[in-house]
């Protein structure tokens, strides 16, 4: 079973995302900011990270840069999932090593489609 770390400071968003991912046969873990996400990754690197941008203590983009600079040999797929829906943010995320980008609000269909883009689930459509 593949693992997904859901990083978002909103408990509700984490809950919704986890429910969708579990339905897609993912084992999920949660973190509410970048620092907690980095700690989680050092304990056990997930296959994929669903990542919010604006979070207290350490933002999503800061977390991503820190993650990609770590020489762990792991390269989990990172999918941003954020309300920062403009080209500038998207370009910055891709430049920092994000693999895909979901613009909130999202639903199961969007998560499924975006995960399919990076080869994580079979495309349903």
């Amino acid at each position: 079973m593949k693992t997904c770390l859901v990083v978002d400071d909103s408990r509700v968003i984490r809950k919704i995302a986890c429910r969708i991912l579990q339905d897609l046969s993912y084992e999920t873990e949660e973190a509410e900011n970048g620092i907690m996400a980095l700690e989680s990754c050092r304990r056990r690197m997930p296959d994929v990270i669903l990542l919010d941008w604006q979070m207290p203590q350490m933002t999503g983009i800061e977390f991503l840069r820190a993650l990609r600079s770590e020489a762990s040999g792991h390269h989990p797929v990172v999918v941003f999932c954020t309300t920062e829906n403009d080209v500038v943010h998207i370009t910055e995320a891709l430049g920092a090593g994000a693999d895909e980008y979901i613009m909130k609000p999202f639903d199961r269909e969007i998560i499924e489609a975006k995960f399919a883009e990076v080869g994580l689930v079979m495309a349903q459509r």
Binding site: I90, L94, M103, E109, I110, R125
Partner: peptide
Amino acid sequence: QRGLPIRRL
């Protein structure tokens, strides 16, 4: 967001 990779967008 349905089927379009972000780089293509």
